[in-house]
Design a protein around this nucleic acid. Sequence first.
DNA 1: TTTATCTGACAAGTTATATTGTCAGATAAT
DNA 2: ATTATCTGACAATATAACTTGTCAGATAAA
Lengths: 215, 215
Amino acid sequence: MKNEIAKTTRSYGGVRASLRLEGRRRKLIEAGLTAFGTLGYAKASIKGICNLAGLTERYFYESFGSKEELLAAVYQDVVEGLMPLALERLEEPFAKPSEIVCDTLRIYFTAMKEDPRKARMLYIEVLGVSPAIDRAYQEATRRLAGIIVRVMGLAFPGLDWRALSRTIVPTGLTGALTLIAINWILEEFKTPLDDILAQVTFLVDAMDAFLTPKP
Amino acid sequence: MKNEIAKTTRSYGGVRASLRLEGRRRKLIEAGLTAFGTLGYAKASIKGICNLAGLTERYFYESFGSKEELLAAVYQDVVEGLMPLALERLEEPFAKPSEIVCDTLRIYFTAMKEDPRKARMLYIEVLGVSPAIDRAYQEATRRLAGIIVRVMGLAFPGLDWRALSRTIVPTGLTGALTLIAINWILEEFKTPLDDILAQVTFLVDAMDAFLTPKP
DNA sequence: TTTATCTGACAAGTTATATTGTCAGATAAT
DNA sequence: ATTATCTGACAATATAACTTGTCAGATAAA
């Protein structure tokens, strides 16, 4: 209670106080991503994270109240960073359903392979930490399901996705995508991405053939 | 190194040494299930688990080298205990595909609702603890996928499930089932099980209608 | 130039947990 | 009956991490 960090207001090293604080916060989030995504949440220590960030513990508590709070911030950051990537593709035109589906999946899976830390955060480290984190996970799952529904809505405009979105179908599709991703992560991306996408293409094409009535 | 527990060989209280040891081990596994399945793995302490088991720490280290080792044993126990339940149903006859699918799912989901500790163990507490546990999770996932393939093979004998089992389809189905289950757990079983199964029935019937050519 | 504030390194206190050790009384073997 | 072993309760130690505090030197403001 006595010795809280005095709120910094001055400029220092030519940068405003708020910018320095934000910079430290970002460094901690980045370090947290590395620590959680490699060591895992349980084995990552605050001191270790601070070392990675090139900061000292004081600055950790300046921005976060606990390791769990940092985890939540890192998780949010990863989720927020990944969403727009997939959404961009949805603005572009496409020739057939399997194209838009696979393109979106490719973006998603590629992002994970390029940064396995994020992959671990998204699916593995985030579960079972605390009720608060569980809620964040649920919320992120819902958003992912929402994106999937949008993609499927574009791919199969004939279906009533507004109605379907109130069923277990989006959750099921999300789960399918998620577990395929988890297995891919745990086997260290051994299966070529193109193999996975070829199978998806086959399935989506089959669904397309079923839905579009032949004359 | 000096003071290891002398290996017990005598009979005591009318029970053989090996039986007493096995009994303590089982008590610890049961206590671990309770602790991990409610507090969560991270927050469960060895002392707390021993209290739940009505044993002292000495006996913990008699049977397990670490908390993680206990987790692996508990996980195995839960997985082994759940498999035969679902497999039993597969011996019985059924009228239509959605019947066998839903019956199996009902058994599975009911088991989780009746013992949420197991549900949490299966899907939530087990992830991200260590590479060894990750492998156990992968193995269990494969076995679950195997069961799903068997169920689908019964429900849709017209499909070549031997070939399909080498695709992402079993993993996808497993993931769908898993995430639906996780959401159900995290929302504390709010959605009535019959609602979920009704949707599954609808989907499986639709798939059936698609696969059986109309005259 | 002088004063106030910021930074980085580290110390200190606190808590929690794991892990090993001790021991008195209960039980079985001789 | 006496000796050896087993059990349960608890003490002691070690370790690790969190959290707060101190302080010298760097930087900016007056």
